[in-house]
Amino acid sequence: MKVLVPVKRVVDYNVKVRVKSDQTGVDIANVKMSMNPFDEIAVEEATRLKEKGGATEVVAVSCGVAQCQETLRTAMAIGADRGILVQTDAELQPLAVAKLLKGLVDKEQPQLVILGKQAIDDDANQTGQMLAALLDWPQATFASKVEVADGNVTVTREVDGGLETVKLKLPAIVTTDLRLNEPRYVTLPNIMKAKKKQLDTVTPQDLGVDPAPRLKTLKVSEPPARKAGIKVEDVATLVDKLKNEAKVL
């Protein structure tokens, strides 16, 4: 079974982004970029499936600028066998990415696609579901446990109020939640090996997809700032403030 794992290059999760003063976006020049944390979990899960014998090949794919190659190399250092970059400088929104991924799925014919549940930059949480819709495949989002057997994948999902388990017919789409696994550290020898793995580049035109954005961003602004708070000395003062000043008790 072949597994496809889409990965996204995003601003590192530790960076506190700043809104540009002209309100056209956030300033990501010269900030540290990394693989989206949920996608690391997806690559790890695919690699574990391969190590258990459930998968034969893991293909990492990324859509975006040339630097996404670094993200693909990271995926290959974790355990992906090869990488495909859909290279474009266009602004990519989830629907466009889902269409590009559908193009790759049609070519590569994987049985399972594992994506992160959301990217920490646009916080959209859409791409996996959209890809499932375009392919008419079943989906299991927010996975905390994945088991492949007998042409099915059984997935435990994190939902409001607890967990639920669904069984999907393969081929299928799974999106990862935080607690699916703990991604391994990439070691230097594996980083070196990853440099030798195959990395192909295609364009949206090759896949017959128009990646133009559908949503227009009119402006990006700072969230309203909270007014500075105070430190109180003791519990009695705190209770008094909550009762008489904030009036929330």
């Binding site: 601003v11 506190k16 982004v17 809104v19 956030v26 929104q93 989830p94 629907l95 920490i120 930059d121 646009d122 916080d123 959209a124 949480n125 859409q126 959209m130 954005p213 559908r214 949503l215 227009k216 961003t217 009119l218 402006k219 990006v220 602004s221 700072e222 969230p223």
Partner: peptide
Amino acid sequence: AQISDIIGVESADTFQRPIYAGNAIATVQS
């Protein structure tokens, strides 16, 4: 396109939504 997690409605086609873990608010038009 789908518009995720809106926190404000400006008009029938324009909405506000948080991005980057709520560190910025985007106004988007569909």
